[in-house]
Design a protein around this nucleic acid. Structure first.
Length: 798
DNA sequence: GCGAAAGAGATACCC
DNA sequence: ACGGGTATCTCTTTCGCG
């Protein structure tokens, strides 16, 4: 029978001595099902040296066969490898785990140049080879089989696959009605970071797609029923997708450990007796369900500096901070122990899970599109970095083009020259247009056929086919035939164009429009990642010369554009990589755009127009007033996460005053007022916290930077800090190095704060960065409102 | 031996 | 665990003077 189904996840299991591909899915009636394919076998390739007798190697390989997992076949196949046609041997065996062993043995055989595609997980191999689309619909020829107790799957039906599924994702873009469950845990820990062998899970809050919210609560410090209640709830509701916030790194590992300690089985999957396990890219895998950590997607929003759940929910309009209960993590015990405050903690847990659910509505549609395009199951696609996401798309494409997938090899890092940044014309400029090249690097890669397979090492080849030669660096690329990256990028851009035109068929507020919009975004993200990927030493398709050539062509292109602009009498104020800031003269700009497209062959567009824009002498930093009255601040302290809120607030306000009214006096008065408030201790502590990321393990630091010292104090107090954590610290009164006065913010009393530091090293520098240009000095800012210096200043200087 | 200057290390930004 | 270019902070070492 034929069956249409929506694919959630692909795994495999060994039954007897046979690998079974397991597909978790949903049929058209909404039944949760399992599809079992017994016919797929793991394989890899060997490519041979020239003049090697293939049949002899073939025989040698066959002789390696072991009964435990025999080599079923060794077939000679024609493949492409870095633009060359090669003959390869495809070696097929039975048990996926034995591929690695065979690979090592085959590698040692004389005449074998390399062994390829032996490091691709069996379930991903299946997805690639059948071009399956996770989070997409398929049709498959199946035969129903009884729900055997041996398989222990919590589904409505099981099917045996007769012939592999075929994707239907083009016709059918809407998912079925999916059951989604958001959850969040609160842990009681009085001394430092929570430890599963000591600290109970006091609250687990859940919310599902029907809007149902449930709060599981511990009895005092006994958390057995909380965890058991949560497990039962999952099994009863049977969600397809489970979402959490930081759940891969905290909630799930904690629950697993805690349950182990309590002797509770965290049996939450669709496969009986399975527990969540940490797997590839650090994601937590739950059998038959898609466990998604929304933090992974929040990480990509650069506008949010401290990516706490409440900040992200606030930023995305999911739940405003002002409309929810806020409790700091270190206050949890206090709220739990006080009967009057406990209600608030429960409400806080509810707000957290509502926020988490809200975030899933923001992120899942994009994640699902990314999953469909790259072929990575939804639970992995978020956890995978941009480079790996693109790489899976490339691997998928390679299969279609009959290209062998290169191995991941360790290489030394080799730097190369990047883009141009122009020296800005300092000062305030009126009416400035910002022009951007559209997708500059992807288009360079396409135009000049850049990639590892088109790179020409022997220039004599160019006489025959013709080559593009990169300026400055001289790398050459074959003009024909189109290389791997060119084909992939053209496909991505073509698909995006198609999606964007299809969007027009739907109302802006329709489900279809949203899906297509997320799809075109995902396609763009992947296309834009190609250049960076090519220059990444960890990439399978690494090509330093290619990346170096792309930036060289980029530099040439923008230089030529500047020439054209100047020849038209447009003044160039600034530019960075693919953008130019020029005087806004409509007619000339129109002509400029036309000439750039004609002479350079790249599209350039007006991105925005500043009524007024301000530059200091520094590159990558400016502030502009847009036509609609909004203010853009780029690069300055106001947009940096490692400056205090108060300094950023002051700088932002100054920019508003200066660009809006041009009134320096008002700006000075404002700064003085803030300084006065700081002296009087009227600025709340939250606005004085400096947040800095710990970019390596604490013991690896050679110098005692303030955030490192603050982190060490946290460790001393029993908190765990790890690489990647953001440390929030405050500078307290005292003498000596700044770092010796840096304390974690939650250990500081407001009266200990060194307001002089905040005046001299935060507010004044941030204010002067802008006001300094207008001739205003530190002295002017520090004078008190009444105009005289205080005794404090006198002593502070001494 | 001392203070200033230069260098090193670190972080977060821009595109 | 996608690229290089850039500004700017704090800590540490070196420099220049005498």
């Amino acid at each position: 029978m034929k069956l249409r189904f929506y694919l959630l996840d692909v795994t495999y299991e060994i039954v007897g001595r046979e690998p079974h591909i397991i597909m978790w899915g949903i049929d058209e009636e909404g039944n949760r099902i399992v599809l079992r394919d017994r016919s797929f076998r793991p394989y890899f390739y060997a490519i041979l040296d020239e003049n090697t007798n293939a049949s002899e190697v073939k025989h040698r390989i066959q002789r390696l066969s072991k009964p435990r997992s025999p080599i079923i076949s060794v077939n000679e196949v024609a493949k492409n490898y870095f633009g060359e046609q090669v003959k390869a041997l495809r070696i097929t065996t039975v048990i996926p785990e034995t591929v690695r062993e065979y690979r090592e043995e085959v590698k040692r055989i004389q005449g074998v140049r390399d062994v390829l595609e032996a490091d691709i997980r069996f379930s991903m191999r299946y997805i690639i080879d059948h071009q399956l689309v996770p989070c997409g619909w398929h049709v498959v020829e199946v035969e129903q089989i009884p729900l055997s107790p041996q398989y222990k799957n919590r589904v409505s039906a099981e099917y045996l696959v007769k012939s592999p599924p075929q994707p239907l994702s083009v016709e059918e873009i809407k998912p079925p009605s999916l059951r989604i469950l958001a959850f969040d845990i609160e842990v009681y820990s009085k001394q430092g970071s929570p430890r599963p062998d000591r600290d109970p899970v006091i609250i687990i809050s859940v919310m599902n797609d029907k809007g149902e919210v449930k709060i599981f609560e511990a009895e005092g410090y006994n958390d057995r029923k909380v965890i058991q209640g949560f497990v039962d709830y999952i099994l009863e509701y049977d969600p397809d997708i489970i979402v959490g916030y930081n759940s891969n790194r905290f909630d799930w590992p904690y629950l697993v450990e805690r349950a182990k300690y309590l002797g509770i089985r965290l049996d939450v999957g669709r496969r009986k007796d399975s527990t969540p396990t940490t797997s590839v890219y650090g994601h937590v895998s739950i059998a038959g369900r898609l466990n998604v950590d929304l933090y992974d997607f929040a990480e990509e929003i650069h506008e949010i500096k401290v990516k706490s759940l409440e900040n992200v929910a606030d930023y995305l309009g999911v739940m405003k901070k002002s409309e929810r209960i806020l409790i700091e993590w270190y206050q949890i015990p206090e709220y739990w122990d006080d009967p009057k405050k406990r209600e608030l903690l429960l409400k806080y847990a509810e707000d957290d899970v509502r926020s988490t659910y809200g975030l899933s509505e923001k992120f899942l549609p994009f994640a699902m599109q990314l999953s469909m395009i790259t072929g990575l199951p939804l639970d992995q696609v978020g956890a995978a970095s941009v480079g790996f996401r693109l790489e899976w798309y490339l691997m998928r494409s390679a299969y279609l083009y009959n290209e062998l997938i290169p191995n991941r090899v360790e290489r030394p890092y080799e730097p190369y020259t990047g883009a141009i940044v122009l020296e800005p014309k300092r000062g305030v400029h009126e009416n400035i247009a910002v022009l951007d090249f559209s997708s500059m690097y992807p288009n360079i890669m396409i135009k000049y056929n850049v990639g590892p397979d088109t790179l020409v090492r022997d220039p004599s080849i160019c006489e025959q086919y013709g080559c593009w030669k990169a300026p400055e660096v001289g790398h050459r690329f074959r003009k024909e035939p189109p290389g791997f990256f060119k084909k992939v990028l053209e496909t991505l851009l073509k698909l995006r164009k198609e999606v964007r035109s299809k969007m027009k068929e739907y109302p802006v507020d329709s489900v279809e429009y949203r899906i297509l919009d997320e799809r075109q975004r995902a396609l763009k993200v992947l296309a834009n990642a190609a250049y960076g990927y090519m220059g990444w030493v960890g990439a399978r398709w690494y090509c330093r010369e290619g990346a170096e050539a792309v930036t060289a062509w980029g530099r040439q292109t923008i230089k030529k554009a500047i020439e054209i602009a100047r020849s038209l009498g447009l003044k160039v104020i600034y530019g960075d990589t693919d953008s130019l800031f020029v005087t806004y003269d409509e007619a000339k700009i129109k002509e400029f755009i036309r000439r750039v497209e004609q002479e350079l062959g790249f599209e350039i567009k007006v991105d925005k127009i500043y009524r007024r824009v301000f530059f200091t002498e520094a590159k990558k930093r400016y502030a502009g007033l847009l036509e609609d009255g909004r203010i853009d601040i780029v690069g300055f302290e106001a947009v940096r996460g490692d400056w205090t809120e108060i300094a950023k607030e002051v700088q932002e306000r100054i920019v508003e005053i200066i660009l809006g009214k041009g009134n320096t006096k008002e700006a000075i008065e404002y700064v003085r007022k803030v300084i006065k408030e700081l002296r009087e201790g009227k600025i709340p502590l939250e606005k004085l916290i400096i947040w800095k990321t710990l970019s390596k393990k604490i013991e690896e630091y050679g110098v005692d930077a303030p955030h490192v010292v603050a982190a060490k104090r946290m460790i001393e107090a029993g908190y765990q800090v790890s690489k990647g954590d953001k440390i929030g610290y405050v500078i307290v009164k005292g003498s000596g190095k700044l770092s010796s006065r840096a304390y974690p913010y939650f250990m500081v009393k407001p009266s200990d704060v060194d307001f002089n530091y905040y005046i001299d090293h935060q507010v004044i520098p941030a204010a002067l960065r802008i006001l300094g240009y207008f001739g205003i000095t530190e002295k002017q800012l520090k004078a008190t409102v009444s105009g005289q210096k205080s005794l404090f200043d006198f002593f502070a200087k001494k």
